[in-house]
Amino acid sequence: MAITKTIRPGLIQIRVLDLDETLDFYKNIIGLDEVGRTSDGRVMLKTYDEFDHHSVVLRKADEAGLDYVAFKMVSEEALEQAKLDTEKFGYPVEVASDEQPGFGKRYSFKLCTGHTIQLYHEVELASDYPMLRNPDPWKEEPRGIRAQRFDHLLCYGPNIAEAERYFMEVLGMFAPEVCNTDDGKRFATWLTGGNKAHDIAFVEYEQPGKMHHFAFYLQDWNDIGHAADLIGKYRVKRDVGPTRHAITRGQTIYFWEPSGNRIETYAGGYAAYPDNPQRVWDVSEVGRGLFYYEGELIPSFLSVVS
């Protein structure tokens, strides 16, 4: 399937409470490489398997949580069109002014759910990226849980029905799977711009701007098991798993990094096609949808956010 508008969420900036301790975790447990630092001391990171300049930025702050997530558009024209369409949709757009080395122009706006979303097209290749000529799977053995890419995130906030409409109408994404309340309102939605089961998901929540988790893609169920071994060995604060989602079919573990941001390791998941019919969950069944082996909701999953 050709991606026509929005390629993927390619950049996420996270607030952390203790920079050194949390950075060590991202490098040695998650297995990210440090790309460099911005002039104001934020740390740029990427996985061994990503091509673009960097994908994860840590900013030291007084609160944990999400600063913003940025989506990569297929072309400069698609970016400019998305900017106009975002304004037409009703969200004022600015040019992002914070420094992101390697990145070209980024547009920034606030979604109804309280999350800051950015859009960009231009980004330099990283100085160190995967092999292209007769490539090995990796240049050096991946470290830690062997994260392959920043995969997706789950946001909590109000009025997700409007957010879903934005991503579909303006960014050309679709929702392979949704969950509705008994009176037919959206309780959760999983959205993608390509073939991945989801690039971003939303759960309806009173407080705006909350992040439930962001996820790194792992190769397979074996690597999920390996990640669980590291969680045990290094006494990482685990939330749920290893288990499987019925929703998106992914295999997963949730845990918290040292600043209290929840991370997911995600493998598998179905290939999403825009012509396939949408899968729909009743809210009474969503526990099974999220935690298929447990067959019920884990209470911390809905109530704990950063």
Binding site: L17, A64, K237, D239, W256, G260, N261, S300, V304, V305
Partner: peptide
């Protein structure tokens, strides 16, 4: 408790 890391407030 949730995160055990000072981030979630639970």
């Amino acid at each position: 408790y949730g995160c055990g890391g000072g981030g979630c407030g639970v």
